[in-house]
Design a binder for these strands. Structure first.
Lengths: 198, 198
DNA sequence: TCTTACAAACCGACCGGTCGGTTTGTAGTT
DNA sequence: AACTACAAACCGACCGGTCGGTTTGTAAGA
């Protein structure tokens, strides 16, 4: 018996590559089959539909990213430091995995209700994470009171836009140039004491 | 002879409605024909392809929005006030025209290179507008020096995310609740003196 | 009569999904 | 060990609906 998990993994990796390169609609199941060196039949054995394959991919990627962020959160001390650490984790992780970033940030917008729902679900997870730590920072007295929900989504949107632009145009080059500016922008935006330049 | 311009306008209005409601791929040319009470033939008489029709729409909408923003800019005095006025203009305008917002903000993401290029082009126009006034504000001495490019795109992204979320989920309800929070967030983010609550 | 501005029937490439068949591993039997 | 019986995993030719685009027809104005 061939190993089910191995084939499934091959398919998901191939799907990641192809979806990231071509976008959802331009991607053919046939091509994922070829790229994974399996077949269309194998894909439909493991996944009920193209859409479900795509969602499975989004879930996995979001989970991986969240894990990296959470790991960073436990490392840092103090709410403000955590906020900054989480941001850096997101940037660095997405910077390293451009395919991942393209799928998470770029797809799932204009592709219909099901995709939009999925994207909202995932973004909400990250927004909660941010909100939680913002509220904590307020309680700590590190920053003045604010609307944590609006702030969280504003930050997510800012990150999204900058990374998407970087993915598509390459600017700014090198990417890291933007990080300190954005970091200061964010911390200022919540009335935090300006961090020392790194 | 029927009036060419009138038919063209009918088509664009119908396209606006249908694209906003269904997204690019789910929209059928046939349906735009019916909605506009013309026909598919008429559409292809006026536009060379579905894609070009969509782009024409994006251009027109972006232009209209830019005009509203610029009008507001000339009304206000002082760089900071202009920044705030422009933001409000964008919110209010997009809030009033949800279909417009859906097309400009939601479509053009995962739809392939041509769409991405178009979106980048339009966003760049707005980013320039913001950058220009930020730089002016710095020169005026109203705010400390900053990376105007990063700031501009961060703001655009934040606006985008919040409006998209509002369009898709209805939260926050009413929408205006978010405006003062976001306005303060933005002004703080550039080190501007906190504005008096409006 | 000639052109313009459409209307409507039509075409055919494309592609997600299906399904009959094949391969490969496994468990039971002798 | 060898053979049988079976099932899980996989392959890929094929189908059928869909939809962007084209062609052909036609009414009306110049």
């Amino acid at each position: 018996m061939r190993d089910k998990a191995v084939t499934r993994e091959k398919i998901m990796r191939a799907a990641e590559t192809v979806f990231a390169a071509k976008g959802y609609h331009e991607t053919l199941m046939e091509e994922i089959g070829q790229t994974s060196r399996t077949s269309k039949g194998a894909i439909y054995f493991h996944f009920p539909s193209k859409e479900q394959l795509f969602f499975a991919l989004m879930d996995r990627l979001a989970q991986a990213l969240r894990r990296e962020v959470e790991r960073e959160l436990t490392r840092r001390q103090g709410a403000l430091d955590k906020v900054q650490g989480a941001l850096e984790a997101v940037f660095k992780s997405l910077g390293r995995h451009r395919r991942l970033a393209k799928i998470l940030l770029l797809q799932g917008y204009g592709l219909g209700p099901a995709f939009e729902a999925k994207r909202l679900e995932i973004y909400q997870q990250f927004a909660s994470l941010i909100q939680q730590h913002l509220t904590e920072a307020v309680r700590e007295g590190s920053i003045p009171a604010l609307d944590a929900e609006v702030t969280a989504y504003a930050w997510l949107g800012a990150i999204n836009e900058l990374i998407v632009r970087w993915l598509l145009t390459g600017a700014p080059d090198p990417w890291e140039r933007a990080l300190p500016a954005l970091s200061r922008l964010f911390l200022r935006s919540i009335g935090a004491p300006a961090p020392s330049e790194r």
